[in-house]
Design a protein around this nucleic acid. Sequence first.
RNA 1: GCCGCUGUAGCUCAGUGGUAGAGCGCACCCUUGGUAAGGGUGAGGUCACGGGUUCAAAUCCCGUCAGCGGCUCCA
Length: 747
Amino acid sequence: MPTITLPNGDKKNFEKPVSAAELAASIGSGLAKAAIGAKVDFGDGQGPQLRDLGALIDRDATVAIITAPKPGQAASADALYLMRHSAAHVMAEAIQDVVGKDVMLAYGPPTDTGFFYDMFVPAGKKLSTDHFAAIDKRMSEIIAENRPFVRYEVAPGEGMQKLKAEGNKYKVDNAERALGLPSTVYHGKKAAFAGVDSASTGGQAASGTGARLSFYATGSPGKNWEDLCRGPHVPSTGRIGAAKVMSLASSYWHGDETSDRLIRVYGTAFATQADLDEFLKQKEEAAKRDHRVIGRHLRLFHIDEDVGQGLILWTPKGSIVRKELQAFIAAELKKQGYTEVFTPHIGRLDLYKTSGHFPYYKDSQFAPIIEREALEQLSKEGCSCAEMMARVEGVSQRLAEGLNHRTGLTVITPDRVMADDKLIEGFMLKPMNCPHHAKIFASSPHSYRDMPVRLAEFGTVYRWEQSGELNGLTRVRGFTQDDAHLFCTEEQVPAEIQGCLSLVKTIFATLGMKEYRVRVGLRDPDSAKYTGAKEGWDKAEAACIEAARSLGVPFSQEPGEAAFYGPKIDFVVKDVIGREWQLGTVQVDYIMGNRFDLSYTGPDNKPHRPVVIHRAPFGSMERFCGVLIEHFAGAFPTWLSPEQVRVLPISDKSNEYAEKVAAALRAADVRVSSDLSNDRVQAKIKVAADEKVPYMAVVGPRDAEQGMVSVRARGVEKDLGAMKLEAFVEAVKAEIASKRAELGVRP
RNA sequence: GCCGCUGUAGCUCAGUGGUAGAGCGCACCCUUGGUAAGGGUGAGGUCACGGGUUCAAAUCCCGUCAGCGGCUCCA
């Protein structure tokens, strides 16, 4: 007979199996009323599992009752999960009511901010945003009807028969996978939905370990709407606080682009209408911060279709932001003993055949640049495209032998080896800076006493991102990494990783990015794809974990996420409105030394392979600036602002004094302009505020007489008072030098 | 790359087959105003590009390019 342990440690004994609802009632009527589900841990190693309130607890377990939040309280993640999972059913029913019963449902899980449901809309039918009002209305009705979610289970055979009779192959597929059967309807390249939650609607339709199929009816089975689903759900539709259909997108069945195209309908649900409204408001706020919108408004950058997709033109104002940021990072690097290098934007194909980038990653690179004479010769010879590709990708005997020997692997297969006169020479826009840096390291001899060698470059690289992926500054085809390669001895790896992290810490702290986390990518113990000695890996992984731990921010260890050549640390920052952005990485590399035959002389007077650490902690200047634009909503701290002070004469009688004020600021290296338009000062203030200028110095005859300026600071909607010009200049100068994130200059 | 939506003045957008529109911005004039938009006049468009249907196309159809929302991808 079950003994149930509650979250507070209390134990309750029952004579017979009880439902979670009965358990809640036995604790208190208030709890029973608020309960919408339960989290049950049978101690069977599966951990706590979310269950229906009606789920029977027939053996010893630890149980937490999931409740709808009390007024004013935030809903728990579990409560939202139950509501959203349930809202997905409500939305699906509403869509079938509005668009047609022949809309075939595929797959509908909760997500971080709501839920979606993938569905197939038959030819001739249409589902568009025009239907949203009707769908929302129908959803509200279903929620108001407060119909119970009723679970029932059937034997596999019976269930499959039922689904097949309904003619929905997607549900048949879900059921087959839930039962662990080979799929009879899906023959695509993916065996399962990768990376989605296993407790999804239809995604896992089996109940527990028993091979039965479960269905949920929204009301009475056989009478009301129902769906193959593993659950769990809230007890009834009325327990979904507020739900809304959000947007349409397309998706593929099983995320497989060669398979059926489905329509993905996004929706969201919250415990209360107020929470939903708050969420919608936040979304609006996020849209206002969009760096593409702000970037255009403040003229920070421009993308021109005549130049090309994903290629950023930094306008004068944006260039200032980027340059200041780069100078800041560069100064920190100098403190850490980095040395700066410059390398060109292209390199010979052989360089990338040596590094392994070409042709292995050719799909994400710009096409090779082939010399004109070679192209003309080939075309004269009537060379086919396929042959040309093979000859571009071919490798000389010498290079192949050297590479295979140094790496101890067959990195160049015999079919790629080609006679020298068959090879086509060419260049490539560089997709990474490391080959160039490796060559700089190799260009001079190194003693273990000189290690580590830290080569830093704001290096511009080019990658052929798919056109649909391009997005403002955050996903582009040409970008400048805050790149560096640390060539070090094995013993130096931990300290160097630490150094990278402390740099990140300093810079995030200065920019006021308080919330960030790191992901440590480790090798998958079951995979053989990794290269390098196990011992080195173990040490490097330990060093990464230790370094991450020492940061004092949340970090996760993610087995299987390592690069094939070494473990890595990724940085994810959270901006002021809670969105996460993946920035840069630190990666340990045991391969590059071999490929480029790098060495240093050890204390034993013998050559040793250096370990290489690749690090670009902010990823790219483009993405980082994009994130910063959104983080600050365009209102940069003074030291980063393209324009730091604007002088506003109240009439043209004060223009001369305004110019004098501006000159004094300019002489102190402050970025300043004066607004000599014939607008009234109110209008000038409005414009300067719109353009997010940190400080306004309003000057009239009164100020001119006494050598003063009247100060306004961004975000403060009033005149702060007057101060001596010299004092103002000094204060602004000091603020810039301090890189303070807040505006602190006051009279 | 794939699916859907979109493309009209520097920006934001109206205009559904019959002479191209607004607000902001810009230029000039008046106004000389002390803290979040003073007034007037004016310039500015091959309606993304190419083709088609039509007496007539910004508008309808096809294609291309680009942007947006997703999917897939991301060394």
